[in-house]
């Protein structure tokens, strides 16, 4: 299968990538290409030009910036998994990445590519929501920061403007007594998330839930936070009964996808079940 012909540009810097993007408004940015190239081969996408940003040095890498960890947008999954810093501080990232695609896909795919593509069944959107990440976009007016909560707008649609480039994802380092977990019901054929739930829970000195964030992906057209679950659990003793009660709220007020593999009703059920599993695992880890 051949994609339709395109012009290939290779950017050496973010500025050059932006300039190329301004000159070629219908161009697509190429990072790992593992969503874009399959879509081009099926002719679901036929961009007239590709701007390869995978060799822009400042876009890749993992940096410790004091109270935050910053991951460049074109950092490949495999490099995130191999990072000792990420394993120590943000263990939910390697946990979720381990169930993305397969070994070969993780060698090519990038964190920023996945987030900017905003596939409704991608794993990482739930994780960046639960971690309270911030995404940096670079455009003609300079840089701006988009909270993860405002990033996912609709099916395959983000808050990024067509002339903006996602440059980095910044994660706050979690406080002590924080546990995190990503739990996924994977489609047995594709491996994509039918429903994926990410939970990040911080316990106070009294053992009660001091802070909790929950993100859900796969279930609906785009990944969402579940504030109702968070509110129900905050300040509570994290007993099995309290987790169960909060998880029951996970499917409320959501729009669910429905397809041949899972009906909307089934996805609603899976959302409650996998939010509960993610919360349970996160709380167990928070207790150490």
């Amino acid at each position: 299968m051949y994609p339709s012909a395109f012009t290939y540009y290779r950017a050496g810097s973010v500025q050059e990538a932006l300039k190329l993007l301004m000159e070629n408004p219908d161009a697509k940015l190429l990072a790992g290409g593992h969503s874009l190239i399959p879509a081009m081969k099926l002719r679901l996408a036929s961009p007239p030009a590709l701007i390869d940003i995978s060799r822009v040095p400042e876009l890749a890498g993992i940096r410790d910036r004091g109270d935050r960890i910053v991951i460049g947008a074109t950092t490949r999954y495999d490099d995130i998994q191999r990072s000792e810093l990420v394993r120590q501080v943000l263990p939910i990232l390697p946990e979720a990445i381990e169930v993305i695609g397969d070994l070969q896909v993780r060698n090519m795919g990038t964190i920023g590519g996945a987030l900017a593509h905003a596939d409704p069944a991608a794993d990482l959107p739930a994780v960046v929501l639960a971690l309270g990440a911030e995404l940096t976009a670079f455009g003609p007016d300079g840089e701006r920061t988009i909270p993860a909560d405002q990033f996912f707008v609709d099916l395959f649609t983000t808050a990024l403007q067509p002339n903006e480039i996602l440059t980095e994802i910044s994660f706050p380092k979690p406080p002590a007594h924080t546990g995190m977990s990503y739990q996924k019901f994977a489609n047995p054929a594709s491996g994509y998330a039918v429903v994926g739930a990410a939970a990040v829970v911080t316990l106070g000195d009294d053992g009660k839930v001091a802070a909790v964030r929950v993100g859900v992906t796969g279930a609906g057209p785009y990944a969402v936070r579940r504030q109702n679950v968070e509110q129900a659990l905050t300040g509570q003793e994290p007993t099995a009964a309290a987790i169960e009660a909060a998880s029951q709220l996970a499917s409320e007020g959501m729009t669910f996808n429905s397809d041949i593999f899972a009906s909307d009703e089934y996805r609603a059920h899976l959302t409650r079940v996998f939010v509960k599993r993610a919360l349970t695992a996160a709380i167990e880890r928070a207790r150490g």
Binding site: M1, Y8, G33, H34, I37, P38, K41, L42, D78, D102, L103, Q104, V105, N107, M108
Partner: peptide, 23 residues
């Protein structure tokens, strides 16, 4: 030819990748 089966796997700079999904 759709990034699923892995028959086209090669090593690119030492890492296994599916060469049907790389230009």
């Amino acid at each position: 030819d759709t990034s699923q089966c892995g028959a086209c796997t090669i090593l690119l700079n030492g890492k296994a990748v599916k060469s049907c999904t790389v230009f």
